[in-house]
Design a protein around this nucleic acid. Structure first.
Lengths: 206, 206, 206, 206
DNA sequence: TTCTAAGCGAGACGGTACGTCACGTCTTAAG
DNA sequence: CTTAAGACGTGACGTACCGTCTCGCTTAGAA
């Protein structure tokens, strides 16, 4: 999908082996799940996939990017529930927050997601790929939700959507990375509501 | 301060060399600043500090924890401005947000902080130390701000302070780690305000 | 020649680098001569040969075996003079004893030989290699000399050749290892003669 | 006995602890027997003896010399049988050869003796101590045997006793160090006889 | 229908850092 | 002045992955 998925353009010579590609992605995914990104070595992936290291390096520049590819398979198939359309901002945020929490706490995706987010700090190529294929799409989904709310007149047109997205997503990422407190449905609901109305009491409700 | 700072309890035998301890912390800090956590190797620290690797391993279990110690020296001396007391919640949050941004974007602390936050994902010992000595203190400072606001009747007594802290800090950490958008004073102000009032328009301003 | 010399059998993958092999043997030989076996470290050999430690460990299990390989280069080219054929046992033994003394006292081979003989006491692999490639060939040469003497009727057919070899070689090795007395041509001649006739006076000479 | 046994001359202050000395010798001997000289580390001896490393280094310059001390305790108590006096050279040599073989093949002394002989190649201090306290006494015993034989007129007065000693002892040492063939009573007898009469047939017996 | 350029497995290679080990020296406080 | 305890600088150990580099062998489209 990211780098490892593009077939050579001017196809001359032996074509890329789809079999190897799949074996690599699969082996990487398994190792990732079993032992985490730290223990997922290129050497290990090559061995488990029955593939030479050279083949891996031919198609993936760094192991982080390979890990992202392996992660992306599962990730992409779980995106729909992140884009609810309930007709109200509150409804959309609540469902999205809950879905996000579910993804982040799923056994397969959660730890790997966290590991990739961390690894990106020291791997520029991974950071770029992660931003492009995972983080930016997430923001774009959130953007759509807020834009619909503006169109519906729920939000003022001059709302700073980018800040709003960070306000909404930041807390969720924070609890994923530093498990200082529960990342559960109650937290999802609390964040959805507090992002909407802030911490201050509404005047009408005082 | 964290692990590497504790002197032997029942002092028998040759006492720990304060000189070495300082040389190690200092060398680690320098390497950290010059080249980042990835390039800060135990071997390099030992060489620059004029110290044997064994001595480092005797006192710091992993390089992450050593890095934290080096980081903490600078970090701890910059905590005061994170605890403003302006008399209003809005004032406190704005000043704290701005101070946080300054810290996160400072040349010395910012990149190292981000690197440590990332490293902690794959180093349990570091994660614990980081939580105990850095993250929890940060939360405690924020807690104090919100508690004062409750005492002042600015906030309802049943406000979920933990969620409020995440709402306030999450966005700042997010932009530190994934530089998707500017981490500047304007953002600090926007977060301070939006955390207070939420994204929805206030009725009074409608 | 011993272990480090065998090329992979079922040649698959990149073939072994002859260039590296030679550089390693050469560097080891130089260090051996300059500083002795104790100071010949794998690390030092790797550095001088411009080779990674892994490459050395891939082909030589212990440094003793590598040292033997380096030693063997010189050693094997000096074997001819150890196999004189003068037509008489006395002539053969005298020439062989002198040649042995020359080898043992040569600046290149002597100290290394002694060091290898010693090292073999605590390195089973080296002991085996040493026996197979150095000590047993030496005995075989001596065996040939005694057998020719038996064929010539100089010795009784029931002479215990193995004991005879030890009687002849033991003293030479002893003075090599424990330099309690001179290892020189006079000693060589004395041993050759005394091994032949024993310490008791011949009846004819009484 | 060698270095570790001498008490400080100008005895002032706390006297040397006899208790420690004995514990060290004993621990060293045990480790020597259990695992060989290679595995007998100063650190291990200190720990087992409940003694500080400093104390060991204060009295023994190198671990080889300590090992020799530990070895010497047993060794010295087995010297008498090495000095037979049967009235004939043949009788003396045969008994001495047999006794030597027994010593060399004893479980306690044999391997340690071989290890010390080897270690001395790379430890000058040990080599000196070994020569002085073990090897030279052995030669002196042998010298006495040959001198008595000369006095008895069994040997010619101009016999080169030093060469004779090497001829007699060399083969025994050789089989101890390089176990190329059995080191047993038959070999002892064969060496005793062949050293006396040489490999050539006696004219009278032809 | 052979040519030929690329992909491929195997695995050796030069590196860098790892974490451990033993050495022999040192610095305390206790005796 | 010796001792037990134990920290220290030194330096080598053997291992693990990294990312690169031959090899000899497909493989399939172009000649």
């Amino acid at each position: 999908m990211t780098k490892g998925g593009e077939t050579a353009t001017g196809a001359v010579g032996r074509p890329r082996s789809e079999r190897s590609r799949r074996a690599i992605i699969r082996a990487a995914g398994e190792l990732l799940e079993e032992q985490g990104l730290r223990a997922m070595t290129v050497e290990g992936v090559a061995q488990r996939a029955g593939v030479s290291k050279k083949t891996i390096y031919r198609w993936w520049p760094r192991k982080g990017v390979l890990a992202l590819d392996a992660f992306y398979d599962d990730w992409s198939s779980a995106q729909e529930e992140l884009m609810p359309d309930t007709g109200t901002l509150m409804g959309d945020l609540r469902l999205r927050a809950r879905a996000t929490v579910r993804l982040m706490t799923s056994e397969r995706l959660g730890p790997t997601f966290a590991a990739l987010l961390a690894e990106a700090q020291s791997d520029e190529a991974l950071a770029d790929a992660l931003r492009e294929h995972v983080l930016e799409p997430l923001r774009e989904q959130a953007r759509a939700i807020f834009r619909r709310a503006i169109a519906r007149d729920e939000l003022r047109p001059d709302t700073d959507v980018e800040v709003a997205i960070d306000l909404f997503q930041g807390p969720l990422f924070l609890r994923l990375l530093y498990t200082h407190a529960a990342l559960d449905e109650a937290f999802a609901d609390a964040i959805a509501e507090m992002a909407l109305t802030g911490v201050l009491p509404r005047e009408s409700t005082t």
